[in-house]
Each structure stands twice: as C-alpha cells, then as structure tokens.
Nucleic acid binder design. Sequence first.
DNA 1: AAACCCGCCTGAGTGC
DNA 2: TGCACTCAGGCGGGTT
Length: 275
Amino acid sequence: MPELPEVETVRRGLEKLVIGKEVKSVTVLWDNIVQAPGGVADFVHRMPGQSLLSVERIGKFLIFNWTDVAWIAHLRMEGKYLYVPTTESVDAYSHVILHLTDGYDLRYRDVRKFGRIHMVDKNQLEQAINALNLGPEPKDLTTVYLKGKLEKRKRPIKGVLLDQSVIAGIGNIYADEVLYAAKVHPEQAANTLTDPEIQAIVDASQAIIGHAVEVGGTTIRSYTNAFGENGHYQQYLQAYGRTGKPCARCGTPIEKISVSQRGSHFCPNCQKVHG
DNA sequence: AAACCCGCCTGAGTGC
DNA sequence: TGCACTCAGGCGGGTT
C-alpha cells in the first residue's frame, strides 16, 4: 500500500522519466479509474497534445501538471505507473494507457482497480486540492496542532493517525511503526494520550517518514517495470508484518489485532493501554 | 463534528 | 484436487 514515502518515490521516478513527454493518444480500459468534468470521453479527448510539465505530491496524492489540465491521482492499494515501449504487450491490469510521442507508453496498472486519476482544468486545481481536506504532512506536524486534534476524538489513536484530514501521508504500515516507536498502544483513545506521548508520536512520524523517503519507501512485494519499487525501508520495520517475531526492544512477540478495521501490529509489553 | 457503514475490486487464504 | 467462500484495505459518499 503506497504511503507518503512510496508515493514520493513514484513522483521522483515520473519526474526523471516522463517530464516533457507529450501525449499522442489515450486508451481507457476501465472507466471507473478516470474522473473528468465530462467523463471518460472528455479525458480521452483532452489528453492528446498535453505535455507533462511537473509532478508534485501532496500526502499520498500525485499532482500531474500537464499543459492545460492537471491530474489529482491516487494509487490507493496497488496502483503503479509504468513507462514502457508502446510495443510491449499490455497486461490485464493496465487500465489507462497514454501513448507518448517518444514511442513509449505511460501506463497506469492496478490489480484492484481502486486507484483514481481525476482530471481537472488547471484553474480548478487549487479548489480541487482544497476539497481533499488534507492535514499537514508529518514534516509540518507540530505537537500543539496534534494535541488540538486529539483532544476531541475518542476513537483509537491508530484510527486518527490514518485520518488524512489530521495528518496527510500516513497509512497502515507507518501508523504501526510510529506507534511502536512512540510506545503507544494502537487502541489508546486519542483524547487520553499524555503530552509526552503526543510529542513522541510527532517525533516518530517525522523521523520514520523522513527515513523512509530517504531509502525509497517500503517494498513489500516486487513488481517489474514499475516506479517506486526500489524501496529499502522494509529492512527497518519493527512492527508491521512482524507478527510473532520478537520485539527489538524487549523480545516479547509482536501481536496483530484489528483496530479501526485495520490490521495493527504492536508489542504488548512496550505498548500498553493506560487510563 | 465525530464516527460509522458501504461500495469499489480481486488475489490470497481458509475450510471441506 | 478443486471449489466455494471470506476478507483486506484507502478513500469518497452517505448516514447517524
């Protein structure tokens, strides 16, 4: 599941390989992935002739700045972008194909079909981004801000960390890693965290997301010809996916439970619910 | 406003 | 073996 570090890695890959390229024609093989003012027909009609000027990232969203339009795109669970020769065969999971004038394709590949590419007029971009209602990214997070957000929430802290309107960019993997580093139980009610715990979460989210960006994100499964697959953070994971393995701090086996409808890994000794 | 539910999808995992 | 069934999982939209 691509989170901020993985999406940033994808962004850098796109920047390196696709900036300046012009779209010749477009094929959409699964309509629900594409959103445009006039639907898929509008998308297919307007993309030819567009050149990619820049790619930005906000939280887990990619912003593609084309000549006259912009995309707000999300990879959701398994979305990938491929940059491959047009002659390469199209597999069953590539749903949006942009044929470029350089003889290559930019293909959006997504096994689950959960991802989205939302095309907007450039003058609508700012408004569309605001409508995403995203909170600050970890690097801009402050203890005062987070404390204010937690005070009025009674749900488990894990669920709040996954709420993109509170913090943008954290998903299930890094939420578990942050809580492990901060020694906070995922089910601890948000409004019962102590000030030192809130500070620890802020510090841990900045350190962990920053480190993960540096090493290209986390690669859980390997794919070929995809952007953002060269991550190395998996070797640093302390909690996520380590069910039954000893905690690096105390040796207690890591447990997995369901919190806010998400699989959650934690050390039952280091991370205890308190009153 | 906060929090929950559903739908979107399909491969992996489970049970028999 | 092979088949039927269940479920994860981020987000948007709707409801309580």
